[in-house]
Every structure is written in structure tokens, then in C-alpha cells.
Amino acid sequence: MTATDHAATGTATVDLLVAVYRETLGTAGLDRDSDFYEVGGDSLTAFQITGRIQEALGVEVPVSLVFAYPTPADLASVLDSDFVQV
């Protein structure tokens, strides 16, 4: 995989997570650096987010990652490096 391939995959993952966060949290203005806690996230929405990520990517994502990496950009970085196989 080249650096360009990884960057493209990373961007796709961030875009996916932003869309999932926006839909789940009902916040249209949310972006890649929006904090899960600051936009009203709670344990129920964290489970909803991980469920949607699992459906989209086909990997089981621990809900604890949403709490540990609260922005879509941070979570995408972890998912790309540890979960998503290209």
C-alpha cells in the first residue's frame, strides 16, 4: 500500500464516520474534529455509532473506542490502523 492509498482510505473512513456521527447525533454541522461528548454523545449513541460502523465496515468495533477517541478523525485513525484491512 502506498502513502496515497492509505491517505485515500483514511479520508474515506473519516467521511464515513462524520456521516455516522451526524446521523446518529442529529447534528448536521458536525465535522471531523467535533468531539463526541461536546455534541451530546452518551452511551446509547456510542452503541448506535459502533453498530453502524460495524455494518458499514464489516468489523466489530468496541464501544470503548468511541469514548477513548471521541472525534471522527481520531477514531478513523485507530480503525484504519487496527481494524480496516485494505
Score class of each variant (00 low, 15 high):
residue 1 M to L: 14
residue 2 T to Y: 06
residue 2 T to I: 07
residue 3 A to Y: 15
residue 5 D to A: 12
residue 5 D to W: 07
residue 6 H to I: 11
residue 7 A to T: 14
residue 8 A to G: 04
residue 9 T to H: 12
residue 11 T to L: 11
residue 12 A to E: 13
residue 14 V to I: 14
residue 16 L to D: 07
residue 18 V to H: 08
residue 18 V to M: 06
residue 19 A to Y: 07
residue 20 V to A: 03
residue 20 V to E: 05
residue 20 V to S: 03
residue 20 V to W: 04
residue 21 Y to E: 02
residue 22 R to W: 09
residue 23 E to W: 06
residue 23 E to N: 08
residue 24 T to C: 02
residue 24 T to K: 01
residue 24 T to I: 02
residue 25 L to I: 01
residue 26 G to I: 06
residue 26 G to V: 09
residue 27 T to P: 06
residue 28 A to P: 05
residue 28 A to Y: 03
residue 28 A to S: 08
residue 28 A to D: 10
residue 29 G to A: 09
residue 30 L to F: 06
residue 31 D to E: 07
residue 31 D to Y: 08
residue 33 D to H: 15
residue 33 D to R: 13
residue 34 S to C: 08
residue 35 D to G: 04
residue 35 D to Y: 07
residue 35 D to A: 06
residue 36 F to W: 01
residue 37 Y to M: 09
residue 38 E to P: 08
residue 39 V to H: 11
residue 40 G to I: 03
residue 41 G to T: 04
residue 41 G to Y: 02
residue 41 G to L: 01
residue 41 G to H: 01
residue 44 L to C: 05
residue 44 L to P: 03
residue 45 T to R: 00
residue 45 T to K: 00
residue 45 T to Y: 00
residue 47 F to C: 11
residue 47 F to K: 02
residue 50 T to P: 01
residue 51 G to M: 04
residue 51 G to H: 03
residue 52 R to C: 05
residue 53 I to V: 15
residue 53 I to G: 07
residue 54 Q to D: 08
residue 55 E to I: 09
residue 57 L to Y: 12
residue 57 L to D: 07
residue 58 G to N: 05
residue 59 V to Y: 06
residue 60 E to T: 15
residue 61 V to E: 01
residue 62 P to A: 00
residue 64 S to C: 01
residue 64 S to I: 02
residue 66 V to H: 00
residue 67 F to H: 02
residue 67 F to I: 07
residue 67 F to G: 02
residue 69 Y to N: 10
residue 70 P to M: 02
residue 71 T to A: 02
residue 71 T to Q: 04
residue 72 P to V: 08
residue 74 D to N: 13
residue 74 D to Y: 09
residue 74 D to V: 12
residue 75 L to V: 04
residue 76 A to T: 12
residue 76 A to N: 07
residue 77 S to T: 15
residue 78 V to R: 09
residue 78 V to N: 06
residue 80 D to V: 15
residue 80 D to N: 15
residue 80 D to M: 12
residue 81 S to E: 15
residue 81 S to M: 09
residue 84 V to Y: 11
residue 85 Q to F: 10
residue 85 Q to Y: 12
residue 85 Q to C: 10
residue 85 Q to N: 12
residue 86 V to Y: 15
